[in-house]
């Protein structure tokens, strides 16, 4: 699986390997993962969105745990802040659902193709109605 990815970005402490990829390739990478490791070969532990205001980017990290050795690797991608759109992977890995819902509600990343996406999943309605994404940097 690693052969299909250029390794860059080094490590997140402690020793979690980071693979940087283009936002357009997220789906194909997860399809590769399923093909090569099987449905039971990994799980998506969490999706972490970070608003990098200065760079004008929202970084989206998929923390994937490879089974059975339980090694955590980071698939790192970034989307522009003014148009944060990514392809959803819930149809490939349903476990990504909670992470996508949360990242959408708190940071406003739009996961295309996720039918469950909605505001107000976590955020109170008054905040959601104003279109405020709480974890965006002011």
């Amino acid at each position: 699986m690693t052969a299909t990815l250029a390794q860059a970005g080094g490590f997140v402490k402690p020793n979690r390997r980071v693979f940087t990829l283009e936002p357009s390739r997220v789906r194909s990478v997860f399809l590769d993962l399923v093909r090569e490791r099987g449905q039971e070969g990994f799980y998506v532990s969490t999706i972490v969105g970070v608003d990098l205001k200065e760079e004008g980017l929202i970084r989206v990290d998929y923390f994937v745990v490879l089974l059975p050795e339980e090694e955590t690797v980071v698939l790192r991608t970034a989307v522009p802040r003014d148009n944060p759109v990514l392809d959803s992977i819930v149809d490939i890995v349903p476990g990504a659902l909670s992470g996508e819902l949360e990242t959408h509600d708190l940071l406003g990343v739009l996961f295309q193709g996720n039918p469950y996406l909605r505001r107000g999943f976590f955020v109170p309605s008054d905040v959601a109605e104003k279109g405020v994404y709480p974890l965006r940097r002011g």
């Binding site: 449905q39 039971e40 990994f42 799980y43 998506v44 349903p94 476990g95 659902l97 909670s98």
Partner: peptide
Amino acid sequence: KRVDAVRHTL
């Protein structure tokens, strides 16, 4: 099922 547990991150 085992496969569901893994796929759904339980």
